[in-house]
Simulated assay, not measured.
Amino acid sequence: MRGVSALLAQLLVALGVGSGVAGAQTYPSRTITFVVPFPPGGSTSLVGRVIADRMSQLLGQSIIVDNRGGAGGTVGAKAVAKSEPDGYTLMVGYTGTLAIAPSLYRSAGYDPRKDFVPIGMIGSAPSSLVVHPSFPAKTVAEAIAYAKANPGKVNFGSAGIGTVGHITGEYFARAAGIRIVHIPYKGSGPAVSDLLGGHIPMSFSPIATTAGNVKAGLLRGLAVTSVRRNPLLPDVPTMIEAGVTGFDAVLAYGLVAPAGTPRFVIDKLNAALQTALASDEVKKQLELDGTEITPSTPEEYADFIDKDEKKWSELVKASGVEPE
């Protein structure tokens, strides 16, 4: 009986391995969806579409980008977390949904460590502090002085509650000792559109969505939120250079799948993602968006998400924003 049981166990293992190999060979066999948890026009959408186009070519299947905005990205994130873990519904991960929301919302509806499987990192980029040309401040120091002279009367826009722009703005206000009023939008695109129209004087928005308008003179760039200047706006100083000590708040992008997605699917997607990021075409497009490419293994991205969530939970606390 022991011999029969051992043989049966071996057969089951062999069948399992065989099904995995077969699955790896046939995946993907239909269209893949990349969920971007924000409306079109924002930086996450821009990055997601660049990656989707190249990975589609590499995988031999169509990849559509599905923009599902709402609640600072948590609507789309929850939808992906509850999706079938078959490799056909993925999310373009972003600092706001994977690192900020768990601290900002008492119940975000998902756990970034338990409900998602990391596929790999894409890159990182700073936010930018930009103002309408009619705003009197031409430097960060002047903006701080103006806000101190007009407490609670200066508004700033962001992609929504719980986004990097929101928390970065609150963090800036706390660091500078000023009171500014947050105006949430349903994405970076709408926020920048209202800023261009003069409906708000200031915004913390991803550099990808503001650089073109700054170069065209339609907006004034006061600072970027990284510790180094960004090639997209080389003449715009960092917050640290502008006098805000130790200021560092960059956003990161990556690709994640629902928990339970088979390992062979994750490996195949990671290989395609890394190949895409190594292509000259993708490098050029992401650099034009101000994104620094940082490819990784699934394990490295998991470690990054863990550390990033801890970092931003501290920034949420430092910003003074109360959990919702």
Rank of each mutant, 00 (worst) to 15 (best):
F116P: 03
S124F: 09
M121I: 10
A101G: 01
A81K: 08
G93Q: 13
S107Q: 15
S83H: 11
S103C: 14
K78I: 09
A101H: 04
I100C: 01
R106L: 13
T97H: 06
S107H: 15
P102F: 05
Y88W: 11
V80K: 04
G87W: 01
A79M: 10
A79V: 09
D115E: 10
I122D: 12
G93Y: 12
Y110S: 06
Y110T: 02
G120K: 07
K82W: 15
K114N: 15
T74W: 01
Y105V: 03
G93F: 12
R113D: 15
G96I: 03
D111H: 07
D86W: 08
T95M: 10
V92F: 13
G73N: 00
R113H: 15
G123R: 05
R113A: 15
F116T: 03
A125W: 07
V117L: 08
A77V: 06
V75C: 06
V117A: 11
K114H: 14
T95Q: 14
T74N: 00
T97Y: 05
A99C: 10
V117N: 08
S128R: 00
G73T: 00
S103I: 09
G93N: 13
Y94M: 12
A101Q: 03
P112E: 08
Y110M: 07
I122L: 12
A108T: 02
R113Y: 15
S127N: 04
S127I: 00
L104S: 02
A81S: 13
D86K: 09
A99M: 10
R106C: 13
R106W: 14
S124P: 04
M121Y: 14
S127C: 04
Y88D: 13
I119V: 07
A77T: 08
D111K: 03
L104T: 01
S124G: 08
D111E: 05
G93M: 14
A99K: 09
F116S: 04
P126E: 01
A79R: 08
Y94K: 10
G123W: 06
S124D: 13
M91S: 05
Y88C: 09
A77Y: 03
A108P: 01
Y94R: 09
D86L: 07
A79S: 14
V92P: 10
A125F: 04
E84W: 07
D115K: 08
K114Q: 14
L104P: 01
G87Y: 00
S103W: 14
G109W: 03
P118E: 11
T97C: 08
I122Q: 09
I119N: 07
S103Q: 12
A81T: 11
V80T: 02
G76A: 08
P118I: 07
K78W: 11
L98H: 15
Y94T: 09
S107C: 15
R106P: 10
G96K: 00
E84F: 07
V80C: 02
P126M: 00
G120R: 07
M121V: 10
T74Q: 01
A101P: 00
P85R: 06
G76L: 05
F116A: 05
M91K: 08
D115Y: 06
G93E: 14
A79K: 10
L104C: 00
I122G: 10
V80P: 03
S83I: 11
V75E: 02
S127Y: 06
S107G: 13
P118C: 14
S83D: 14
Y105D: 01
V92K: 10
A81W: 13
